[in-house]
């Protein structure tokens, strides 16, 4: 006959088993892989940890290639496949070059999502989740023109020329400027400012030479955004209006002190969090991607989802994180019904 103590032990064991089952709902191992080390991707680490906990995934890991080189990224992915990872959220080290790896992943039954940057079609990535860079740059330029009082000369501080997103951003800035009907002129596009050294040299040289001609600047890369914020503070110049990108503390402090008009927030946390959730569903085989979902078409891909963007300025400086979390929650809660077909 079962004693009271035995009953308690059995109950405890059963409880433990049930708890373990509830704690890890899936045995999938998911990896989120940026193209290389960059502060933009830091929120992916927290997103991975939160997604693991919230959705009961066995492992969601943030793995960073040691350098921005496609071969290092593909070697890392291949090594993770060898370790049994079943789903990948990848910022393509190269929009074209990553495709052969994505096809091989698909060939091995492993789903992948292009994250924060898209792979060039035709691609075997399930879809691309990221900032609509064209929209972000367009809205940012509009915000800048508003801050400049609708007239003056603009300089665009752009990222790497070889990055297809740079081409889109350049077009977006040109379009927004053109819509001013000649009141605003694009003075210069300073490209390849996506490294600290290059950004320092180019932006400081630009300000030294043409400070008086410039009415406003927009940065569409993380590093030029930070460097320009610092430079404007050093100059003590509040006449030149500036719209940055992302929420580095240096940029946020410059907004608070009036040296920067605003910055375009992206949603890297949401990208990582939603990607882990969706990859788990795809890797489990319970869901597939809908062909006729309301995808956004971009020059790179026909299956794009905007992870959200908003302007941070003095009005929402303290509350913008809550706004982004709301955006993330909205996308995640509707994702299954909008973009997936599930058993």
């Amino acid at each position: 006959m079962l004693s009271i103590r035995g009953l308690v032990r059995c109950s405890a064991l059963l409880g433990l088993v049930l708890f373990a089952g509830a704690a890890v709902a899936s045995d999938n191992k998911i990896a989120l892989i940026p193209g290389g080390p960059h502060p933009y991707f830091k929120p992916w680490e927290q997103a991975a940890a939160d997604a693991k906990k919230d959705f009961g995934i066995a492992a969601v890991d943030f793995k960073v290639p040691s350098d921005w080189k496609l071969n290092l990224q593909t070697e890392l992915i291949e090594s993770l496949v060898a370790q049994g990872y079943k789903g990948f959220g990848i910022f393509p080290g190269d929009a074209v070059g990553i495709n052969s790896t994505l096809s091989e992943l698909k060939g091995n039954g492993i789903p992948s999502i292009a994250l924060a940057g898209c792979a060039q079609d035709p691609t075997d990535a399930a879809f691309c989740l990221g900032t609509d860079v064209y929209r972000s740059a367009y809205l940012g330029t509009k915000e800048l023109i508003k801050a400049m009082g609708g007239k003056g000369n603009v300089v665009h501080l752009a990222g790497l020329l070889v990055d297809p997103n740079t081409t889109l951003r350049v077009k977006a800035v040109e379009t927004a400027v053109a819509e001013s009907n000649g009141a605003v002129k694009l003075l210069q596009t300073v490209a390849d400012t996506d490294s600290q050294e290059a950004a320092d040299q180019k932006i400081n040289a630009l300000l030294a030479a043409q400070k008086d001609e410039i009415g406003g600047m927009i940065a569409t890369g993380y590093i030029p955004s930070v460097v320009a914020s610092k430079s404007l503070r050093t100059l003590g110049d509040k006449r030149i209006k500036f719209i940055g990108i992302d929420d580095d503390p240096i940029v946020l402090d410059a907004i608070k002190d009036g040296f920067v008009s605003g910055t375009m927030a992206q949603n890297p946390y949401g990208q990582g969090y939603i990607a882990a959730y969706v990859l788990d569903l795809l890797a489990s085989g319970t869901c597939t991607v809908k062909a006729d979902a309301p995808w956004i078409k971009t020059p790179q891909t026909t299956r794009f989802i905007d992870s959200g963007t908003l302007v941070i300025n003095t009005a929402n400086l303290t509350s913008y994180k809550d706004d982004l979390k709301k955006v993330t929650g909205d996308i995640q809660s509707k994702f299954k019904t909008t973009y997936l077909t599930c058993k």
Partner: peptide, 14 residues
């Protein structure tokens, strides 16, 4: 052949 594409980012100093 590996990449199925010709990319200007390969080779070089790597």
């Amino acid at each position: 052949a590996h990449l199925g594409a010709a990319m200007p980012a390969v080779g070089g100093e790597d």
